[in-house]
């Protein structure tokens, strides 16, 4: 959480009536104030040097021990860390809030790379359920397959799976981009609110079910559309964006994006305001 000074002076956003919530109880939300940006920092972030590289064998460690060790290495300035023998352990690499090159030589279990903000991660293996849940920024590349709830509730960053993914990919996502090289399971984009999902292969039943907003691009066959998911026109700018994104993601660079289907919310279920407060300010 931001370490902000309490000030009596109203910020511009407050003056515009955008922060009017009166919060009580145990949770006291503090809004980011750009005027006090110099005081804004994350706990547990480090200045790391990408050229400072080390290996970490986690074979005989618990996930907590491994994560603590990664944290220790970052505090020593290591900017490139190669994790050996992850062997499907759960919750590896969670809560990394700074820039870091992280490479896993093997597969992760559930909740790998959860709640991260900033790292560039390559996983030379498979990931279990809920990979990169709540990702804020950064890039996570999975070389093989991924389990269900891939990229659940992400808010930013790029999440790339070169293989196939399970059900409910991008469930509740609020931003960022998810790219799937293979097929995706049922309920892909379930209740998504913002962001984009690209699937180069086939996708299962109930695609985009109850989606508020956001966009899904599908290259293969669609099992069925979910409630309130509708086709939209694939524009030239969509195609340019898709080409650029697939190239940067090192996946499907030669894929014919002109044949992709674009799916958006019909907005019959929800009356969703998709602007963040900062964007709202611009729109006003």
């Amino acid at each position: 959480m931001a370490n902000l000074k309490t000030t009596e002076k109203k910020t511009k956003a407050q003056a515009m009536g955008m922060h009017t919530e009166v919060l009580t109880g145990r949770t006291q939300q503090k809004f980011f104030n750009p005027d006090e940006a110099e005081n804004f920092y994350y706990f547990g972030t480090y200045d790391v040097d990408f050229n400072k590289r080390t290996d970490l064998d986690v074979k005989d460690m618990t996930a907590a021990e491994a994560n603590k060790k990664i944290d220790g290495l970052m505090s020593e300035g290591y900017g490139t860390i190669v994790i050996k023998n992850p062997q499907g352990k759960h919750s590896l690499g969670v809560g990394i809030l700074n820039k870091l090159n992280l490479i896993f030589e093997g597969s992760l279990g559930y909740f790998g790379m959860g709640s991260c903000d900033g790292p560039i991660v390559r996983i030379n293996g498979r990931v279990g359920w809920s990979c990169a849940e709540n990702l804020m920024a950064g890039k996570v590349v999975i070389e093989k397959n991924a389990g269900s709830c891939f990229g659940a509730a992400i808010r930013g960053g790029d999440l790339i799976c070169k293989g196939s993914v399970g059900a409910r990919t991008g469930i509740d996502m609020k931003g960022g981009t998810i790219i799937i090289g293979g097929d995706a399971g049922a309920f892909t984009g379930f209740m998504m609110q913002r962001g984009r999902i690209i699937i180069l292969g086939d996708v299962g039943i109930n695609l985009g079910d109850s989606m508020y907003d956001g966009t899904i691009f599908v290259g293969g066959e669609i099992g069925s559309y979910g409630s309130d998911a509708v086709d939209a026109e694939l524009t030239k700018s969509d195609q340019d964006w898709l080409k650029r994104k697939l190239k940067v993601a090192e996946i499907g660079e030669n894929f014919d994006v002109s044949k992709m289907k674009k799916i958006v919310a019909g907005k019959k279920l929800w009356n969703y305001d998709n602007l963040e407060p900062t964007e709202k300010k611009g729109a006003i």
Partner: peptide, 22 residues
């Protein structure tokens, strides 16, 4: 249910996947 169970008997790197719905 979890890959970690498979890894306990097959510690080497292997290709696993999630079967799809239905």
């Amino acid at each position: 249910s979890e890959e970690i169970a498979i890894r306990s008997i097959l510690p080497q790197e292997i290709d696993t996947y999630d079967p799809f719905d239905g």
